[in-house]
Design a protein around this nucleic acid. Structure first.
Lengths: 253, 253
DNA sequence: CAGTGGTCTAGACCACTAT
DNA sequence: TAGTGGTCTAGACCACTGA
């Protein structure tokens, strides 16, 4: 009768079947936060499998944050952490695609420049170092949504493809034109109001609220190799975060 | 001589020592993205440990996103994903603490109300359902930083503690006063400008750019049990995201 | 003390990859 | 075909918990 839960002859691994079984119990509320799971020995005996296989399944549940273990006591259903919130930035670009809109990047300007004092300081490089500078506007169905300005050191002197300038990924760009590999990235998200120039490019009125994001790319030696500033229209963009175990069910609310 | 790397007599588990060993190799760049790790059998033989212990260590590296495995081929160092960005909202409140400032919550208003049509629709409940409504201002060193308005259904009629009204966690509040348990949470982060009322409360001028966050708490049946709106001063708050493997080294830049 | 989860072993068979 | 990682077993000993 337990064969309905774990089929040892299935191509699906036993540990995965077991993981899904408990996941379902928890998501459905049959196992409530604080409830104890059966002991590993009990589970192994009930399904006639090895304790190591049981532990593999429980390990997956722990990784998913759905249970926690306490040495000498047992394994318990965790409380969903509704307060630790993460906003996934992919939203900014994915949102366009999800709505079935066509994303398009327009190159406004692209130049090789020699770093002046301000840029040299910002990039942590020497003055007059050759840099690649460019600006793009990202549109969806013809409407401007974001305005990005980017700088990266240009030490490799490899050819610049227009396609890569239209790619919003600053780290890919740095990988192509810096002589070191991008290793870390820092982004700061702020609110601001559009400057005259930004308002003109985005086709909004001056003082419209916008998201302002500044990104810095570092190599393995923690040297800055790229810097970018992005302005997102506040009337078109938003970030959404879902937490908990029933997330799929509320996404369309 | 390998004993310097893995000490089988240490109280630290072997798999963890091995995990740290490879983590160090990767962070230091001695193992570059794309490089293959030794095979599991090789590692087991070199350190004279069981293959299962090696697999445990590699499993940790996989969980950390530092390596990936390919059946029949081997295990390889992953490329850090610098494009998938997450902003951790805890920033909003942690930032205050991190700066050594004292957070304080001031209760502006707290009432039990009967839901009017607008609120009933927003909370997905019947008109005239009893709800707890309140507003707070969060200050740091006396300066207002955030303004929050919250509603939750009030079915348990349990006493309301002023301390819990000052806790910024909407899910904790819903847990106390709703007759069902919070299960999922949805948050939407937008930019806006302060309304007259918000500007007055926060002590900023009208039309100052602000973060606007709306949170909805659901129970296991996907019924809304709480709703809240938070206004964060744009001139005081920012969200920061770090990606990559050298993150600790760039946090102070 | 008995029971729990944490670690570890020395095998085994499998599916997949490349040659 | 040989080599890889993926799964699984049936033990073992340990540290920790609570009675």
């Amino acid at each position: 009768m337990q064969g309905e839960i774990v089929d040892k002859n299935s191509v699906i691994p036993i540990y995965y079947q077991l993981f899904k079984y408990f996941e379902k119990q928890i998501r459905s509320g049959q196992l409530q936060p604080g409830d104890a799971l059966p002991t590993e020995m009990e589970i192994a005996a009930r399904f006639d499998i090895s304790r190591m296989t049981v532990r593999h399944a429980i390990g997956e549940l722990v990784s998913a944050g759905m249970v926690y273990t306490q040495k000498g006591k047992g394994t318990f259903v965790a409380r969903p952490r509704l307060d630790s919130v993460v906003f996934n930035l992919n939203n900014f670009y994915d949102e366009i695609r999800q709505k079935g809109m066509k994303r398009h990047s327009e190159l406004l300007e692209a130049r090789i420049i020699k770093a002046d004092e301000k840029l040299a300081k910002r990039l942590g490089i020497d003055i007059n170092t050759r840099c690649l500078y460019f600006r793009i506007v990202i549109t969806a169905d013809g409407e401007p949504l974001a305005y990005e300005t980017k700088y990266t050191v240009y030490t490799k002197r490899s050819p610049i493809l227009e396609s890569e300038l239209k790619d919003p990924s600053l780290s890919n760009l740095a990988a192509s034109h810096s002589d070191t590999i991008p290793s870390s990235s820092k982004r700061v998200l702020m609110v601001s109001t559009a400057t005259e120039e930004e308002a003109a490019v985005l086709g909004v009125s001056h003082d419209t609220p916008v998201f302002l994001m500044v990104q810095t790319i570092y190599n393995a030696e923690n040297k800055i190799i790229a810097w970018g500033k992005s302005i997102f229209r506040g009337d078109r963009y938003k970030l959404t975060s879902y937490e908990g175990w029933n997330v799929e069910n509320i996404k369309n609310n």
